[in-house]
């Protein structure tokens, strides 16, 4: 990756658990973001990783705001910087899935509707991990959490569709297992103005019940099994799939995580069916993009079903 901002903006000694998916995600995002930035974090593991007062692991000015206001906090800072004549500083907010899908959704929607000028990175670990693993609307079907002890009973909320519905200039999914893709997306977002949203899957080893060195592996499996495809949405309309997945069976992804240890064969089948449906839907949207807007994204093989590697 050709990156001029090669400083490490997340220092060693941060307060994350060993192998934390959040820390990997934040480090990668901050590396691409560079030092001309102001960062907002809200209650989540990101705020812990940033360090206890008066220490900080972040190499840029940053602010621990309140849980549900990552978006309007970033908007306020961005507006104020512009009033001060500062236009070359990027404001970036980190919020968890709880802070984005649940409690912060109204405020995020408001800011996105106004197309406020900031990058918003949702570090999605699919539950309230900082409070010790409770179900959120980002938690996938059947997943164990402390408040879904028999497995979650509903599908994960489709935050990308919600953000696309706001017709913001840029929304992208990203994975800590694909750091170059993630950094390229941050760098692309930096060149744009308005509300830019990155949905970054960042496993919690504790909450997902995986080993401390498995976050990248499990993240890779989520992409390769089409549980979490990598794509971009421009202006809420034009879809572009960024990576040709291997289309591994979802079972490969589910079986390595303790949070799905109780899952039944029928349930695995249901996850596979839903995953195939969602992938076909995504591919159809990309095809429709080509048809309507004449864009020529990277050709993706959108054959349905799975194949063993």
């Amino acid at each position: 990756m050709n990156n001029n901002n090669t400083i490490d903006v997340l220092d060693a000694g941060h307060a994350a658990c060993p192998g934390c998916g959040y820390a990997i995600g934040m480090k990668t995002v901050l590396k691409a973001l560079g030092s001309k930035a102001v960062v907002v974090v809200v209650p989540s593991c990101a705020a812990i990783i940033a360090g206890p007062f008066p220490n900080t692991s972040l190499g840029v000015p940053s602010f621990h705001s309140a849980f549900e206001i990552a978006a309007p906090t970033a908007a306020g800072i961005s507006a104020a910087l512009k009033r001060q004549g500062i236009s070359d500083v990027t404001v970036l907010a980190f919020a968890g899935d709880g802070g984005t899908f649940d409690i912060g959704l109204q405020a995020l929607s408001g800011a996105a509707d106004r197309n406020e000028d900031f990058i918003y990175v949702c570090l999605d670990n699919e539950a309230y991990m900082n409070t010790g693993v409770q179900v959120s609307s980002s938690t996938p079907m059947y997943s164990w959490t402390g408040t879904s002890p028999n497995g979650n009973t509903k599908n994960k909320k489709q935050i990308m569709e919600i953000m696309a519905a706001h017709r913001i200039p840029y929304a992208a999914t990203a994975s800590i297992a694909f750091p170059e893709d993630l950094m390229a997306k941050v760098e692309k977002a930096k060149t744009m103005r308005g509300t830019r949203f990155i949905h970054l899957l960042a496993p919690c080893n504790t909450g997902w019940k995986i080993a401390p060195d498995e976050a990248p592996l499990v993240s890779r499996l989520s992409v390769e099994s089409n549980i979490f495809p990598l794509y971009e949405i421009f202006d809420g309309l034009r879809y572009e799939i960024n990576y040709q997945p291997k289309r591994l069976p979802v079972e490969n992804y589910l079986a390595v995580q303790g949070r799905f240890s109780h899952i039944l064969p029928d349930q695995i089948k249901a996850v596979q069916t839903e995953t195939d449906r969602a992938w076909a839907e995504l591919c159809a949207r990309e095809a429709r993009t080509r048809q309507l807007y004449g864009d020529t994204p990277v050709a993706i093989d959108c054959e349905s079903g799975t194949k063993e590697i």
């Binding site: 705001s65 309007p72 306020g76 104020a80 001060q84 408001g110 106004r114």
Partner: peptide, 23 residues
């Protein structure tokens, strides 16, 4: 700059963060 927010909660969030930025 006038920010026509979606709630009073966000109004105060916007004002407090702008104030911290120094305006």
């Amino acid at each position: 700059t006038m920010v026509k927010v979606e709630s009073e909660h966000s109004a105060m969030a916007t004002c407090l963060s702008a104030s911290l930025t120094g305006v």
